[in-house]
């Protein structure tokens, strides 16, 4: 499993995004983090070629949420054969926007002195959950009523042996805020909100029955195409 972070969202372990055989010896592994509002792409570059690598640069294609490098890719010294460097690339969300399929797809180009290489990766949506995503309770009730039923999506989150308190606290570490909790017919009903970096609000109802590790998550959003990715983020956060 991945590493938690003290002051931020869940961070998945690094995965290989660009295998050396597809990039003339350059191997890239990475993951995404969000810590106190700062998004970054944490990269590991390994030189598996026979020659030194220099002149690194990185560029993102337009993407659904405008993710873009906030600084150049800083590799301070030439990368010798068999050498690995760890780099944290700060990101912002003010880049060009183009809806991608799937929504969380990111196309990346990396260059060095040898060539330019391309790869795609999927980012977890919770890196876009902002710190001030707790909706006012009155606003929540009004918005819940206002969003049409067609925009409600329902999901099952299976095999999650946590109680309502643990669920709330885990989700809050990733900027999903519990606004109200009710117990009806022996079920805990959690009402929650989150907001994405582009201003989209997502309202949630999470049903938990004591002793039952399967939860029902209902999401209401004016942009319903984000719902399945938000559900995936819930699963990732709750199961790690």
């Amino acid at each position: 499993s991945g590493v938690g972070s003290l002051s931020g969202s869940y961070v998945a372990p690094k995965a290989v995004w660009l295998p050396a055989m597809k990039a003339k010896g350059l191997e890239i592994s990475g993951t995404f983090t969000r810590q106190v509002g700062a998004i970054s792409m944490d990269l590991q570059l390994t030189n598996k070629a026979l020659q030194v690598m220099t002149d690194f640069a990185i560029q993102f294609n337009r993407n659904s949420f405008g993710l873009a490098p906030a600084a150049p890719l800083q590799v301070h010294a030439p990368l010798s054969p068999n050498q690995t460097v760890e780099i944290s690339l700060p990101l912002n969300t003010v880049g060009s926007v183009m809806k991608m399929e799937p929504l969380n797809n990111l196309q990346v180009a990396v260059k060095n002195n040898i060539d330019v290489f391309y790869f795609s990766t999927l980012y977890p949506l919770h890196i876009l959950f902002v710190e001030d995503g707790k909706m006012d309770r009155q606003m929540f009730l009004a918005t819940w009523k206002d969003i049409p039923n067609e925009n409600e999506a329902q999901f099952q989150i299976r095999d999650c042996p946590l109680n309502a308190e643990a669920v709330s606290s885990k989700l809050q570490n990733s900027n999903v805020f519990t606004i109200a909790k009710r117990n009806v017919e022996a079920q805990d009903m959690l009402y929650q909100s989150l907001r994405l970096t582009n201003g989209i609000w997502v309202l949630a109802e999470l049903r938990i029955q004591p002793g039952n590790p399967n939860f029902t998550l209902s999401l209401k959003c004016r942009a319903p195409e984000v719902s399945q990715h938000v559900c995936q983020a819930y699963e990732t956060i709750l199961k790690n």
């Binding site: 309770r137 009155q138 009730l141 009710r182 009806v184 017919e185 009903m189 009402y191």
Partner: peptide
């Protein structure tokens, strides 16, 4: 929580979702 009528509104919402 403040007794501003919202507590009751959330209770009604939860009830209506359980017994539509």
């Amino acid at each position: 929580e403040l007794d501003d009528g919202l507590d009751e509104a959330f209770s009604r919402l939860a009830q209506s979702r359980t017994n539509p």
